[in-house]
Design a binder for these strands. Structure first.
Lengths: 199, 199
DNA sequence: CAGGTAACTAAGCGCTTGCTTAGTTTCTCT
DNA sequence: AGAGAAACTAAGCAAGCGCTTAGTTACCTG
């Protein structure tokens, strides 16, 4: 193992490259990260990256797509676990927030680096993003329909809810003392307030 | 005027450089922007930038600092115009949101590019950011103290309020039909809900 | 254990980057 | 008008970039 490697040395080379890229992209952004940064972070020579990925952008795309997919799975699971809109919103907001804390490096790539993808790749992740958006809006609409939520506009409110969760990736730092669970619970409580539920 | 210039040709050279830099940094990020992009955006040769700014980072710093200062002034003014915490929060949220819409290019630089500053410059803008944070928290605390607001934790709630406003810079695009005033009013209403005011 | 394949590296190519230098034009002031 | 300063450009340098090439090592299969 190279002395500069920062990712888990027991993981597969592809996984180490993804880890190293996630860390570097999250820390400095896509363009400020060099392929040499990624290679040495994974314990490889500069050329080693190209055995597994055709380009730096392809690495970003793989990271971005798998990150979006895991966030989307998480949202769907949270919704399926709740039996009422209130439970669904509460679980969704807690889990989605926790994910942004625990996976804050991947989350930053997901939220802030996707515009550096090629137009084709960008379109693909934008579809996943729209899907997330409408999952949240649907929960709100069901809550409004059955009278438990009161919101002026479900699209605006869904956007604000996502803003609160997504913005965690911007301000979170591992030096912060609050646990993912605590931050998730706080945001879930704020979400219920925003939709006028639970009183 | 060079055929590639995109900024107002009647503005001073320094202003044109700041405009061109704001546009480029907002669109592609600090590192993906070249000094040649900025120069040609301002209608200058590549060397023309260095007559007015010592480095690309100095240009980012000037933009970032003046952007933070104008946002801070706006917050202070909004607070001074209201006579109750409710009025202050409502005005503050509306104006701060409107600023993120109208100045969305500068706002993106302010919110997303400040970590590319040198440590000294970064520290300087971080002080301004903390000041914004505490202005909002103080309004909440006064509202809690006089009984008009009910919040669990004023720091968490202030952060969520800022998230909703700041995140506008991430999702806003000039192709969106809603006016700055409409978006500001929406966010102001959401803010009052979040603090349990006005019912 | 030979033969083939996949993983990896050393070296470096062509290009772009931030910025400098040396010189020219434009403006200001007496 | 003429001197001095400020604004600006043409040309280009050193360094760093993404990525390739040619070759070596490690591994799997029959």
């Amino acid at each position: 193992m190279s002395p500069t490697a920062t990712s888990d040395p027991d993981a597969s080379t592809v996984d180490r490259l993804m880890q190293a890229a996630a860390q570097a992209f999250a820390e400095k952004g896509f363009h400020a990260t060099t392929t040499r940064d990624i290679a040495s972070g994974a314990g490889l020579s500069p050329a080693g990256v190209y055995v597994h990925f055709g380009s730096k952008e392809e690495l970003l795309f793989n990271l971005s797509r798998s990150g979006h997919e895991s966030a989307l799975r998480l949202l769907r699971r949270a919704i399926s676990e709740g039996s009422t809109p209130t439970e669904q919103l509460e679980t969704l907001m807690a889990r989605f927030t926790e994910w942004h804390v625990e996976q804050y490096q991947v989350a930053r790539v997901v939220q802030y680096e996707h515009h550096h993808l090629t137009p084709e790749h960008h379109a693909e992740v934008l579809a996943l993003r729209k899907e997330m958006d409408s999952l949240v809006r649907d929960v709100l609409d069901r809550g409004v329909a059955d009278g438990t939520f009161s919101v002026d506009d479900s699209a605006d409110t869904a956007l604000a809810l996502l803003s609160i969760a997504v913005d965690v990736a911007r301000w979170y730092s591992p030096t912060i003392k609050r646990t993912p669970t605590e931050i998730g619970a706080t945001n879930a409580a704020l979400a219920l307030r925003l939709v006028g539920a639970g009183r």
